[in-house]
Design a protein around this nucleic acid. Sequence first.
RNA 1: GCGGACGUGGUGGAAUGGUAGACACACAGGACUUAAAAUCCUGAGUUCGAAAGAGCGUGAGGGUUCGAGUCCCUCCGUCCGCACCA
Length: 698
Amino acid sequence: WRSGALVEQRELTQWFFKITDYADELLRDLDTLTNWPEKVRLMQANWIGRSEGMLIRWALDAKTAPSDANELEVYTTRPDTLFGASFLAVAADHPLAKLASEKNAALAEFCDECRRLGTSVADIEAAEKRGFDTGIRAVHPFDKTWLLPVYVANFVLMEYGTGAIFGCPSGDQRDMDFARRYELPVVPVILPAGEDAATFTLKNNAYEDDGVMINSRFLDGKSTKDAFEEAASRLEKQKLSGRPQGARKVNFRLRDWGISRQRYWGCPIPVVHCKACGVVPVAAKDLPIKLPDDATFDKPGNPLDRHPTWKHTTCPKCAKPAVRETDTMDTFVDSSWYYVRFTAPQAATPVDKEAAQYWLPVDQYIGGVEHAILHLLYSRFFARAMCDTGHLKFAGNTREPFSALFTQGMVTHETYKSTDGYWMLPNEVRFEGEGAQRHAVEAASGRPVTIGAIEKMSKSKKNLVDPDDIIAHYGADCARWFMLSDSPPERDVIWTEAGVGGAGRFVQRVWRIVEEIADTFPLDDKTAKPATFSSEALGVRKAAHRALDQVGKAIEGLRFNVAVANIHEFTNVLQAGLTKPGADMAWAAREAARFLVMMIGPMMPHLSEECWARLGYNTLLANEAWPEAEAGLLVDDQVTIAVQVNGKRRDELVISRSAASGEVEAAALALEPVIRALEGRPVKKVIVVPQRIVNVVG
RNA sequence: GCGGACGUGGUGGAAUGGUAGACACACAGGACUUAAAAUCCUGAGUUCGAAAGAGCGUGAGGGUUCGAGUCCCUCCGUCCGCACCA
């Protein structure tokens, strides 16, 4: 239904949000989003695509121009290169192209051809730069005697700038390609640093960077930046038909947001079309407009448009029969402000400003990078628009909906296709062989299966793994633990169950340790903390407190795989400690068990509550505060420092934490491997980094 | 074409410029067992060596530094975004 007359008709009633009004602010405020990934900020900046340039009006030579066309306005970011101009070009849809086509059948044909091609990315890539000389000549703004040809060119976009450009082949690769094809002059106007003006020439590569102006009359010798300023201010002062010939202009790549969809599944756009009153908004009391329950989907096209009764209503203004808008909104509209609604989901009005002000902005937003541009830009726009319409107010002076953003990776998996071309679930497939011999067959029939690319898990390609299988076998906590331990959350993961067994063993191990400690050292609030600890017990305590510190920080930083590794490490120490019983170890072990259970809590909630109860507590672990690590247990009196000779590690040294540099140096130089590595050479220099490393240079 | 990210053992991955490979998976050997499972212990980047030890080692090559996986430059590869935006 997107072809033919219907599209024309639709064009007239397309609905847009004026996101371009916020282009500058959306771009500028990206700098304030310091807790957003650089990548996403960059993608948004590129998408908004701000460029500073000029609109320049060129007079058309009366002898060659159509009678009702006497000037052509172009957009450029490089007024400095005006003396390198060798042609002008307009888009096939440009009014001047249409005007010129009226008396030129060949030109009209060329314009048609341009319109047919050049829509898809692939077309553009393949398309050569082609043009058609309209015969019209334009007058150079700085030289009345200099006439330039005006072409229609397939690489000029009507949607950007004015749909017309001036071509400077020496300074722009596209213009260069065009000039070489149509044998237009190529005049270098910018001399790169280190080049000689007398010998500098360009072959088929344009020089697009900065330099010193040449062949440019009054601009000669200026820097690119100064030349821009000079040319711009002259054009601003210079008049053409009584108006300034040039005007500075900021242009954006960002377009307005077309929200009209010809689909059933979306919020209806709440307006009515009345023959007498025109487009009339639906009264607030009649909102929301509900979709009909009896839509049919048996034919292509918009079910709302062909529904027998739904669209027929009366005009809110004059009460005469009128027709509802049958376009519905893009679903991105809903996702652009749900976070505001979520602060007061029961509110009678769309937004409870007080609740929104209390909760927003969102502290930590987590989502896939696929939303980097559309959803996240629309949401930033909506937050601002809602502030301006009085629907929303933020507590601070920000207008950003999401303070911090984290982009998680995707879960990917191999894809499988049967011989008849159907996608197959991984659990319908059996594997044989290894390495290059590895191949797949249908588990049920033994028929061969093609192993396809590793792709993002999707229902359509069926490369899905059902977590129920893992949950049934190992439990939900184990599934969670395994996923968190596997790789950092920002990275894509190729899903594999290899390793889930290890997570299962860890779950069992935690339970065994907790049982052992609960049985051997039952909860007894009266047991006083021992005055001193054996070195083993102290070791357990240090490991416990260090883990608490590390795991807390890792979780805060969303580095869950590191948190898991830290817990593993600590568990290993605790388990070894249990083989050396004693009153002080009992106390240390109980403390350690309590910490262990608390640390796994966020990642294995069921197991940890079970363990918590097993340790004798009759509270909910979920209500417990994260314990504070004792600072004194986080540092050792003795530190191990590496000893290098000429940057190569030769030995290590255990020494008092507070040892003076001289002391450390002496101890390092006395080490036998150090003496050996020096091979009798004198020591030139010794670098001592306290508590870290010694480097002997010799 | 423009912009960006990444490249570390058999695998997933650790590492504020300071002992590369933590932790785990897989693997091998051992203990326990009639046996297996489970559990526990041990080993393991690579080359040479019986060992002690030594050489090499974070995609390749250069640079900065006492010291580089980490910073800078060039190249190769992989991935992502934008794409004739004047």
